[in-house]
Computed example of a mutant assay.
Amino acid sequence: MRSVVLTKGVPDFSEGAVSFDEDGHLERGKTPTVMNPNDAFALEAALQTRVRHGGHVSVMSMGPPSYSEVLEGAMESVYADDSYLVSDRELAASDTWATAITLSAAIEEYQEQVGDVDLLFAGFKTADGETGHTGPQTSWCLDWPIVTHVLALDIDPDERVLRAKRLVEGDVDEIETVEAPLPCMVVADPEFAPTYRKAEHRLEHKRLRAETQERAADHEAQLTTWGHEDLNLDPEYIGLDGSPTIVSSVDPIPKAPSEREATMIRPDDPDGMGEVLEEMHPYAAGGD
């Protein structure tokens, strides 16, 4: 069983230092980066699959060289064997479509160099774009089936079939059970929760964790970087030139006041603490 997990670095909005150029494009080199939170569920799904069925797991991302740190964190999360970074100036300012074209080409290159992929995992959506397009568009480029909003999954290796429970969003949330032939793409829902009921699975989980801690300590040795020429991509169809999306405007996120009115109360001040309790009591009681 061979799996690849797509992950992405997103701006660390908590730092309040998100930078845009004059055309409204995010300047990733000037913005602190963290792993996309929703990718954690894709990593959990891939890890569960590996623990249950064995095999090889790789993590892959597209972005600037600094994304190697994101991949290092992803490797530690999913206990991956190696990681792949698609990084090139020609890829800058890619929208979801140009990103999907690039990632699908990277998967095809991976299959030529490493081996056939059975499962491709992705997160529900990214914290910076919120579109949820990249996973479905990548599967379309590969001409693979895709199962989205996955809550639970398992594999029948003999029949080469994925069986999954997925959330159906509508007027009423429903759960349906579906099947898909391998290879296929899995988009994990934020409600995905891995399960390790068998003792052998829990022991395997522990073994993989210890093994990966040693491997991740020398992450660069397991990192492969590809540019657009390595993937035989035409610059006209990637990056900004290959992105049909147009940014009409960017509104800055308002920052909280640097100074706020505050009253300092010492814990050993009974009168002051009494005032705090009196102030908080209506809210604790459910008042307005």
Rank of each mutant, 00 (worst) to 15 (best):
P136G: 04
C184R: 09
D156Y: 08
T131W: 02
H133G: 00
D171W: 14
G135N: 00
S83W: 01
L142A: 03
L120K: 08
D156M: 10
A180F: 12
A106R: 12
G54A: 07
G123P: 06
R166S: 13
L103Y: 02
A180W: 12
Q111H: 10
E191H: 12
E130V: 05
L120D: 07
E76H: 07
S68V: 05
P194G: 13
M60I: 00
L151V: 10
E179K: 04
L71C: 12
E174D: 15
I155N: 06
R52D: 01
S139H: 04
L153R: 14
Y67A: 14
V150C: 13
T148V: 14
A122H: 08
E174T: 15
M75Y: 02
P136H: 05
E174G: 09
C184N: 05
E90L: 03
E90Y: 05
D88E: 10
P190A: 12
A93G: 00
Y110P: 02
D173S: 14
T96D: 05
G123D: 03
H149G: 05
Y84H: 13
D171I: 09
K125I: 03
K125G: 01
P181N: 10
Y84C: 02
S139M: 10
S94Y: 04
Q113T: 09
M75G: 07
V59Q: 12
S61Y: 01
R166L: 11
H53M: 08
L151F: 04
E191I: 02
S87E: 12
L103I: 15
S139N: 01
L119S: 07
E72N: 13
E76Q: 12
S61H: 05
A188M: 05
W140V: 14
G73L: 12
D143T: 02
P65F: 14
F124N: 14
D189Q: 07
T134I: 09
R160N: 08
D143M: 03
V172M: 07
L120E: 07
G132D: 00
D95H: 07
V168A: 13
L85D: 10
T138C: 01
P183L: 02
G54F: 03
K165P: 01
P181R: 13
V147D: 03
R163V: 10
W97A: 08
I155W: 08
E179W: 00
L91H: 10
E76N: 08
P136R: 06
K125A: 09
D189P: 07
A80I: 11
I101Q: 09
A93R: 15
E69Y: 02
T131F: 01
L162V: 11
Y79G: 08
L153P: 06
G115L: 14
A193H: 13
R197W: 02
Y79K: 09
G63Q: 03
E159C: 05
I146C: 11
T102K: 01
P157W: 09
R52S: 05
F121W: 15
D95C: 12
P190D: 07
P145M: 02
